[in-house]
């Protein structure tokens, strides 16, 4: 009972943080007066309040997924595999949101002068952007792999092992490869990190956005994973009673 009560408190705190912080970021991100931006970015710099936190949420879900996969491999608890699967789905979901918002942002800044018919206007093959796509595809591979096995335990084990490699690719593909290859994003090549140099006005919206987005992802994960576990249990009960 004490465990259930603790979980309930954690869920409530997470829920309040997600609702409060994202509501604040939606309003402040659009209306707060920011330091003057260079003409290439201008007001599009507000995208940083939504685009970057999506990647933080994506990475948080990726690492959460691998933690559950390791838990499954250690103890063989099917509930852990269900949670790993749901976290993997959210990794792809937030990754796709990050890619879409990134494409929209780059279209009006880096690729401003290009015509719509030019593929580079929509995908400039920036190393960080392309690495992010590769990470999303790696997680898509996780689900393709899961679909390849009918036997539940075998599927869970192989998918969990694959998930470890998938999670191990996140940091190198997001930070090491772009740093080595350079590109248009901050913190690539010789460029410094945009996060470290943020002005207080941007900082005060950006970090609540990151925390809020991660809390929202955790909230969705909690609801989806619990629903999946309950469905799993009901199916097992029905199977036993049949």
């Amino acid at each position: 009972m004490a465990n259930l009560k603790r979980k309930k408190i954690l869920r409530t705190v997470n829920l309040v943080l997600a609702i409060g912080l994202i509501s604040y970021v939606i309003v402040a991100g659009l209306t707060k007066t920011l330091p003057y931006q260079n003409p290439n970015l201008d007001q599009t710099s507000r995208s940083v309040f939504y685009h970057v936190p999506m990647w933080f949420a994506m990475m948080a879900m990726g690492y959460t997924s691998v933690v559950y996969s390791i838990m499954f491999l250690r103890k063989g608890n099917p509930r852990a595999d269900v949670k790993a699967r749901e976290a993997g789905r959210l990794t792809i979901f937030f990754g796709l949101l990050g890619l879409l918002t990134g494409i929209a942002w780059s279209r009006v800044t880096w690729a401003e002068g290009l015509p719509n018919t030019d593929p580079a206007a929509w995908w400039p093959w920036d190393p960080k952007q392309t690495s992010a796509l590769i990470v999303v595809l790696i997680y898509c591979g996780y689900f393709v792999l899961r679909r390849s096995f009918d036997e539940e335990n075998q599927r869970a084990r192989i998918a969990s092992i694959y998930n470890i490699f998938a999670a191990a690719s996140i940091y190198p593909l997001f930070y090491v490869v772009p740093k080595a290859l350079g590109g248009l994003h901050p913190n690539t090549g010789d460029k410094g990190s945009a996060i470290i140099d943020m002005s207080p006005e941007i900082y005060s919206v950006f970090w609540p956005g990151v925390i809020g987005m991660v809390c929202l992802a955790a909230w969705i994960l909690d609801v989806r994973a619990r629903m999946a576990v309950v469905n799993h249990e009901i199916n097992e009960l029905q199977y036993e009673n049949a």
């Binding site: 599009t44 507000r46 009006v108």
Partner: peptide, 25 residues
């Protein structure tokens, strides 16, 4: 809901870009 949210983010980020100034302040 999530599809609509993604679309809104997309529209908002794009709208920001269309409202840009010439070089300078």
């Amino acid at each position: 809901c999530v599809k609509s949210l993604g679309l809104i983010f997309l529209l908002l980020t794009a709208q920001n870009g269309w409202a840009r100034d010439a070089e300078g302040a």
